[in-house]
């Protein structure tokens, strides 16, 4: 396999007056070149903070305290070598050239991510001029070409538009155009369609799939929507309370979820293709991040809770057959 990004034991904590919130707590996963990794979990599970840690965009009181983020950088001669992004200064020249250039990101609220007082053409051109050695007029050409690639009609006229003149779907297209203008090898998409309508969402997802195939780019697709993950992702990482609880290929995870949390999430969804009188629920709520739990963080809500075991022992990642990984004591010798 051709690993593009490997995250090892990532720990990003927020040091608040109330205590230390372990937003990301030893997360380990990897993304292969040209592949779509789906990261799924409920709010507060740390999926967005993971993305921001990779981009080195975590702001105080948040700090990445430990871990490695190995990004395989390919130089002009075609030689590739891994760099640990955490060793680079967050605002230094290397990181600035990677961020927005080799690793690009799009966000949930497309309109809030665009500047309201600059023309969209200028915003895209700015990014191109920052990362590529081209003249302003060439940059403009590239920008128009990118807008055409994301299917914005009358691209050369839309260059002069402001964000408020475009619909939400159009703004997200502009964000994608901007993100892809420097041919990133990894696109981090943080809930890119959550704020959009169903039919607009379908358009954006289709566009992302087409571009991904054309440009051979890897995507880290962060969402709470398991349905989108099932359609878009090759590999899936399930997060709960800052930890990766399960990883595997999308088809395996949806066919045969291993972690009780993944199972419960899938069963709590109302589905069009199944008649369920009552939905399965996960008891309780996601616990307070300031008061860490002993043992497995999911144990108070788990249907397979083993007293004296799950609330005592911290589960470690366990490799199952066919490259799957699960963090649950049910798969250890502790299980009865």
């Amino acid at each position: 396999m051709d690993t593009l990004l490997e995250v090892k034991n990532l720990q990003t904590y927020f040091f608040m007056a109330e205590g230390v919130a372990k937003a990301v707590d030893s997360a380990t996963f990897s993304i292969q070149r040209g592949q779509v990794l789906g990261v799924v979990g409920e709010s507060g599970c740390g999926k967005s903070v993971t993305a921001r840690s990779i981009m080195r965009m975590v702001r105080p009181p948040g700090h990445t305290v430990d871990g490695e983020i190995l990004y395989t950088q390919t130089d002009e001669a075609g030689q590739s070598a891994p760099v640990d992004l955490l060793q680079l200064p967050a605002t230094g020249p290397e990181m600035r050239s990677i961020r927005g250039g080799e690793i690009a990101m799009i966000f949930q609220e497309p309109r809030a991510s665009l500047s309201p007082v600059h023309r969209i053409g200028d915003q895209i051109t700015e990014n191109i001029l920052l990362h590529q050695d081209v003249s302003p007029s060439e940059a403009k050409e590239i920008a128009i070409e990118m807008l055409q690639q994301v299917n914005i009609p009358l691209a050369d006229q839309r260059m002069n538009a402001y964000a408020h003149q475009l619909s939400g779907g159009m703004c997200q297209r502009v964000m994608i155009a901007m993100a892809l203008s420097c041919h990133p090898s990894l696109l981090i998409a943080d809930e890119p369609t959550t704020a959009l309508d169903v039919t607009t969402e379908a358009q954006i997802l289709e566009l992302m799939q087409a571009l991904q195939a054309n440009l051979n780019m890897a995507i880290m697709f962060i969402t709470h929507d398991l349905g989108i993950i099932a359609d878009m992702a090759d590999e899936v990482t399930v997060m709960y309370l800052g930890r990766v609880v399960e990883r595997g290929s999308a088809s395996d995870i949806f066919r045969d979820p291993k972690h009780p949390y993944t199972t419960a999430l899938l069963e709590s969804l109302p589905r069009m293709d199944q008649k369920r009188e009552w939905l399965q629920t996960i008891r309780g709520v996601v616990p307070d991040p300031y008061s860490p739990l002993n043992g497995c963080p999911f144990h108070p809500r788990c249907a397979h809770f083993m007293p004296g075991i799950c609330n005592e022992i911290v589960p470690q990642p366990i490799n199952l057959e066919d490259g799957r990984e699960v963090r649950c004591l049910l798969y250890t010798e502790h299980a009865v």
Partner: peptide, 23 residues
């Protein structure tokens, strides 16, 4: 609308997704 729904299950069926043009 129905074809745009993503079902959270193994994607075996090659169902055609209708993507509406325009807004």
């Amino acid at each position: 609308l129905l074809s745009a729904v993503h079902v959270a299950g193994p994607t075996d069926s090659q169902r055609e997704r209708i993507v509406l043009e325009g807004e």
